[in-house]
Design a protein around this nucleic acid. Sequence first.
DNA 1: CCATATAGTAAGCAACGCTTATTATATGGA
DNA 2: TCCATATAATAAGCGTTGCTTACTATATGG
Lengths: 142, 142
Amino acid sequence: MPRLEESIGFLLTDASRLMRRSFEQRITGSSLTLAQARALAHVARNEGCRQVELADQLEVKPITLARLLDQLEQAELVERRPDPDDRRAYRLYLRPQADQALDDIRTAGGAMLAVALQGFSEAEEDALASALRKMRSNLSSR
Amino acid sequence: MPRLEESIGFLLTDASRLMRRSFEQRITGSSLTLAQARALAHVARNEGCRQVELADQLEVKPITLARLLDQLEQAELVERRPDPDDRRAYRLYLRPQADQALDDIRTAGGAMLAVALQGFSEAEEDALASALRKMRSNLSSR
DNA sequence: CCATATAGTAAGCAACGCTTATTATATGGA
DNA sequence: TCCATATAATAAGCGTTGCTTACTATATGG
């Protein structure tokens, strides 16, 4: 009988929760949560995209993304501009302050990972990243 | 410039969120959340332990665990018994229905992992588990 | 015996994510 | 052209997780 609490499922949630804790402790400057940071990073890679597209990418419901964008807009990091071709839709753009926030995210994330990945070889890091990408793809609803 | 949104940090949170979604869709029978399931699994491995010990193991605050235990107690899966040697403390025990719930957790978790780990060799699974354990240990507050 | 520490809980907060429903706008037939 | 249907975004409201702060009751050590 395998130890249930040491299964990959629980290990992954443990690592994820500890990572979030570490990240949010380090990013006190920008006071972003991990979910907000993630949304911001995706806007940065997809400037001009619509919310429904981004929600699909992030694999959350549109309303969940809308709330995240409310926070990012209030922090003046992201801007919703009306889509000229579809009056129902917005297109998403970075505001000037976003560059600084993205830097902060990189810094906090880097510091967190430096701790989390202590003792990992580069090959181990690559294997981990690759495994996680594969899992994400396997679990994707698309 | 590495792709921020593909860093191990975000990959891990993605995989974790998708896993939780998949798990909670599959365990409709017992209607447990992943966090409750995790707490239950730890009670099973540590019957008779005190809440403060379990909270420490789970790396959550005692009050966070207390809420989880409220839910598990209401579901008649876990029982708080007064510690005979310390009138401030409880000791935690499984109720009879817990066996069935733990089976359900194994089943739902197994089905979820079967999807999540499609295309993984046994060696890759082991490497992933080992990497996650190392990360957890590196990020542990203890 | 008293100061301090510890076990557990209460109250209240914020984030995340959801379901369901609503509004406004697009779009594809008849 | 018009209408039925679909789509983009949001509103309202819920449950879960996890936290901080503060409290009560009990242990424990000097």
